[in-house]
Design a binder for these strands. Sequence first.
RNA 1: GGAUGUUUAGCUCAGUUGGUUAGAGCAUCUCGUUUACACCGAGAGGGUCGGGGGUUCGAGUCCCUCAACAUCCACCA
Length: 852
Amino acid sequence: MGALKRSNAFLFFIFILMKPRELAKAYEPKEYEDKIYAAWEQSGFFNPDKLKAKAKPFVISMPPPNATGVLHLGHASALAYEDLMIRYHRLKGEQALWLPGTDHAAIATQTKVEKILAKEGTSRQKLGREKFLERVKEYVATSQGTIRNQTRKMGSSCDWSRERYTFDDGLSRAVAEAFVRMYNDGLIEKDYRIVNWCPRCASTLADDEVEYQENDAQLYYIKYGPFVVATTRPETKLADTGVAVHPSDKRYKKYLGKILDIDLAGHKIKVKVFADQAVDPEFGSGAIGVTPAHSAVDFDFAQKNKLEIIKLIDENGKILKSGGKYQGLDVNQARQAFVKDLQAAGQIEKIEAYKNNLSLCYRCNTPIEPLTSEQWFVRVNKKIPKRNKTLKQLATEAVKSGEIKILPDRFNKIYYHWMNNLHDWCISRQIWWGHRIPVWYKQDEIYVGSEKPKGAGWVQDPDTLDTWFSSALWTFSTLGWPDKTKDLKNYHPTSVMETGYDIIFFWVARMILMTEYIFGEKPFETVYLHGMIRDKDGRKMSKSLDNGIDPIAMSEKFGTDALRLSLIIGSAPGADLRVYEEKIAGYRNFVNKLWNISRFIFTSVGNVKTVKTEPQPKTLADKWILSEFNNLVKEISLDLDKFKFSPAGEKLYDFTWNKLADWYLEIAKIEGSKDQILLYILERLLILWHPFTPFVTELLWEQFGQKEMLMIKSWPQANKIDKKSTDYFSQLQNIVIKIRNLKVENKIPPKELPACQLESKIFTKNDLQVIAKLSRITLVANLAKAKSFSLGSTKGRINLAKELSVKERQNLENYIKATEARLKNKNFVDNAPAQVIAETKTRLAEAKNKLK
RNA sequence: GGAUGUUUAGCUCAGUUGGUUAGAGCAUCUCGUUUACACCGAGAGGGUCGGGGGUUCGAGUCCCUCAACAUCCACCA
């Protein structure tokens, strides 16, 4: 056992330095993780410019977590996959850049701070715009700190020197620049349209920011001139300007094109009767009262049929002057009062129970009020000047052409479908926390530009931009755009966008749309969509169910490496993943196993050092383990290149525990003198594991006393695989297992070493000794009265009383019967490939042999 | 209403273009401290692959159909 030499000249290893003998019996992640992370961070290698990389850059923009809360398991899983990719590509010698950042998350953040203010008994209105924004900034600063620390805790090797925030000056400039360009191209326009309005947020919402919830409602049938009109919202009838019927509905043909005066409990309205295919003549009375100002469908009717648009409900949910005597009431009060009046007037035919979908704000769950308003829109169906294509077409083609690959590919279809049905995107919001719209007004003039115009009297548009507008620029705004920076040239387009499938529309689609517009180029090559994290029963983790698992607590309890494994192994792109403590504990056990394998190797070799080239194998076991290792390197490299993280992890796990530990280390104890091979494999195994379990591998690597950290070593190359040795070795394993079985079945205690005679054409004397030690028998030259067995080309006799178990015999007999029948089947013999027939015959012979 | 996914051992999941007697981890049972590890080792039991039908010499795998669960989109006068 040689003492370790290490160089003090290198600052990388500022954490606890230990000599091999001092490795604790069990790995205690808590003692090391923070120190290891600090050492990585100080080394500077999270920054790709510090790497001596020769290969192409590999870039991931970290999806910015909302600056509102704490890291949950969803973030932890995303960080695990992203860090896995980044570390793998860094080890492959690429310029790996993982750019972290946070998002100002306009509505989400504002809502959160408003809740805090409400608890303090104040409100944003009471504070005023300036003071309120100060409060939000304070809040964001605190939660950003939390997010940063928790991201570090997960071992994320991201380049903190490039950290960005959507509210940075640079990014804000990018937002303004993008707006101005789109405005100048006529792709952003102000328009008076129907929008989704959240009365609590006092702001518009985009179509995909509205959620639906089934709701028990009442359907009122109202006597309405010559019609009976059914509605769940009687109060809106106060602003009806049309009645729609089906074109072939004979009942109403005579009214088509006419303008009728209708009296609703004394409230007078004028409605134009028109026909539309969309009307279902079977529903209710087959006539729809049309309220253009407060229903998206009705607004379309109004556009098509030139109906008057009367706004009835204001931005606070109160009835306007157009509502006559109901003016000033809020919507619910107005409904009650109006229904009462209608009933008194005998105009309510009936009221039925009815299930409908209530539209809710995705941030605060307040019911949405559709209303007309003047807002800024991105025109997705308008041709871009000089390109003769719409934004929608650009974004669709980027995926259709194969330029961008989405994993799993079934999301292509979902993406196309969404893109196809995309309407103009309302981007102005009336909330305060966000990027101000870069538009200034002076009487009749309008100025659009990234800077305030010169001269006095200009007033900036009070509205802010949809948070997704700035997020859509994320892959390039973080690299310095609109400036022509070196980073932009080197690192854009990025390589992989790793994110949850729940925000494919909100974010992924909009990044593609905006990047294709601005650069005529994709934002990323591959989209890897991970699934949602669920509890053991498959339920979403939520505060109300109290079934959430805190990643930080799990990291403290089991170690970050174990947590990461539990998130990586067993997961597939697009598939939800169940996570629970027992699973994490299982991987904690594995990490400890890896620790002890290393501990065994470090303490049993004469001198701990790295081994440059593959050592010459001496025994069958040596040839086998090297072949298995080379095969492992080959396979997991292929898996990782194809984003198959879970299979790669499983193969590593299987090799480490079931091959290296269970067989080779045991044989090493028997055969001895395996320092070179053990060190050769361990060194490289730590590299292979590093992207999965960065902490423990870096710590163990320290034992080699090298100047460089494991993080920047080179990914191993696969050498030759010796097929004959793997075949022979599996025969050796089968014999050992066979003998162990025979011993257990015959109730021979493990300590007893029954006499056994072994004859083989392929095994050396040494191999037979290995078999004897592993299976715990005494090898003898001759054994007269004994149970005989045979496996492959090896025959054995062992001193046991009992025969094959009844079940074993039964299985063999069944198998032989079935196989013989198959071989007699003319169809099989004529049609199956010769190789399959030959294999079947061989297996049959083996089975018969066993029965003897 | 449209679309997608899932259904394999008690639990969580693998099973690549159809081809060994369907695998792993956890859990269970038996035995066990031998040069690292009880967060361990050796061994065992446990599955008519959601139901039905079809194609094929051969189906967990391909096709049809039904069912349950989940998710997304659209719409709801």
